[in-house]
Design a protein around this nucleic acid. Structure first.
Lengths: 193, 193, 193, 193
DNA sequence: TATGAATGAGTCTTCATTCAT
DNA sequence: CATGAATGAAGACTCATTCAT
């Protein structure tokens, strides 16, 4: 399996650094290769194209969000508590890896429509897990029974996303983690019965 | 004044079409010129660069949002009602001009960081007006007095933005306007005292 | 006659300024028009093309050299004295009009081969007058009777030209006129019997 | 070292041909690439820009003049003999490579001021060696002790340059080498004590 | 005569990808 | 597996010239 080989990881990690430091359009394959310590051509032994690096990088990194969220879902907590942990986790992953935050919130979005559609595919699993929380909360009366799950999910994700993007655009100069409880409270109110 | 000349408008309108149909990076200046019915060089009599077309187009179109929102603020209504009208207006403007919706939600974001910073400048006026609603509602007790206005604004804008982007990504195949009251209700709950 | 109309002169004078200040390749027709205080299109009522401005400008300015040199030839002096006055005049004209010096020594030479051939045509009259001095001097024994007039002319003109070009390239920071007697002496020696 | 690779030389040689045949402004990079038998992009693996080709080409070719002149200076000859050999060498190098003569005397000068300043830098070494001859001759009494070396150098170089340029402009239709002794004699007279 | 808005041909350079070694 | 030299397609922008007014 290619993904387990050390060069595969080297390249993915190099891509995060190069995208964060140079922006999407200045992230040439040769820069990524240099950062990874391999030859340009070697990239193509592991990835079909430059776009593929981007997508696989996103998949790799998203898997952390998904893995963590699955753990959160397994715990014996209320839907509200799960929601809180989900928000906190989302903030925490990007707060802990500021390069990654820059890449996901800014640079990645400069890719073309087709890539972003594929990125959205990757996001879907994460959003489904979020839906599970929302459905559970609606069923057990924590959230409003008339709540539209799809819209609620868009509110949760849209709010989180906007909050983090603003933080990144402001050069990450305030403490993102301080916002987690406040964002949670706002969102919870929105959905409460 | 260049902005009042017919060719200026022709080019702006052509740019919306070409950006929507081809995406930012496939929107060659020659395509825009052809769509506008002018020579390539004519573009540069009205715009300093291709990027400038994008920014000016955004400014022109954003001014509709701002103008409408200013009207809404003048009316003698509760903050909640103003919020409702704001959401409805935002949805309506993009629902009424589906090409524009594609451009603002998808294509515009492919531009580089610098352009997006300038676009954000334009957005600021709109977001300030939104803040006015939120502050008014907080003051008169409609919204929670402990509410963080900046976060609330990010929730409102983030939710609206995510909702519309999802609609565009789904090829605008459902009726966006149906979502306005529901989105409003979710947001209002979030902020209610 | 077009040459007598005021706009013709305005444009020629503007061209000297614009060529000197911006260099040949940055001397756009629109800049010349602006400097001359006329519309772009007006240029083409007086000149067939941009190249034509250059050539006519050179002709106009060269005529000063020629007129002065004709006066010098008429005077009742030895060939050596005429040569001295010729050198002095050449230096003086360009020393007195530093913009013109920049144009003739640097900017004009950036034009293409065809233009420079036409400029050389204009130079020919001047060089023929120089030949007259050389032939006279050779005939009356002032200069070496075995002297090749064409080569001697190339020495005289080449030396003058190189001297002035060096002065211009050094930002005209020393006094060109001080060099006239020394250059004359060098050249005279070269040709003396 | 890039300069030792065969493609580097191929491109330099192709550039001489293309510049000579088409002139500076009609010497498109794609023409040079075609003439060199490489892809357009390959040019940029060896040269930073089109201008850089010009400058490096000039440096490569000028080095022949300088190398030869250094040899001449080493020989145990009078300053006058060295001057003669210098003139002869200068004529001979360009007489032997008529394409190069066209490029140095005509096409190179069409480049902009900045490039010509860099070209002048390259010339300086050559002119310093010429100065050595002149100073030596002045010291040992061969040349006039009151001679201004800078002016004498400008006479020597200006005369040579003008002679060769005239020869090139006349389509190199007479034998340049025949002029060497005559030019030498003229110059020597100019400087003789 | 004079204007100046409009035209559209023309080119350097970048960089993702390939392939001979 | 790994290399990195070579490829070549693609596009924003300038500016001399025209022509309707």
């Amino acid at each position: 399996m290619k993904r387990d080989k050390p060069k595969y990881r080297q390249i993915i990690d190099a891509a995060v650094v190069v995208f964060a430091e140079n922006g999407y359009h200045q992230a040439q394959v040769s820069k990524i290769a240099k950062q990874a310590g391999v030859a340009d051509g070697t990239i193509y032994l592991y990835f079909k194209s430059k776009e593929e690096i981007l997508i696989q990088m996103f998949q790799e990194k998203m898997s952390v969000f998904v893995t963590n969220l699955k753990e959160i879902l397994k715990e014996d907590n209320s839907a509200a508590e799960k929601l809180y942990k989900m928000v906190e986790n989302h903030f925490n992953v990007l707060y802990s890896d500021k390069l990654l935050a820059t890449v996901t919130q800014l640079e990645l979005r400069q890719s073309n429509k087709e890539i972003r559609l594929r990125i959205n595919e990757v996001l879907k699993e994460y959003l489904s897990l979020l839906d599970e929380i929302l459905i559970e909360g609606r069923k057990n009366g924590e959230f409003d029974e008339g709540m539209d799950v799809r819209l609620a999910r868009q509110m949760v994700f849209g709010t989180i996303d906007e909050t983090i993007t603003t933080w990144v655009m402001n050069d990450q100069k305030y403490n993102l983690m301080d916002l987690a409880p406040k964002v949670y409270k706002l969102l919870l109110n929105g959905m409460r019965a």
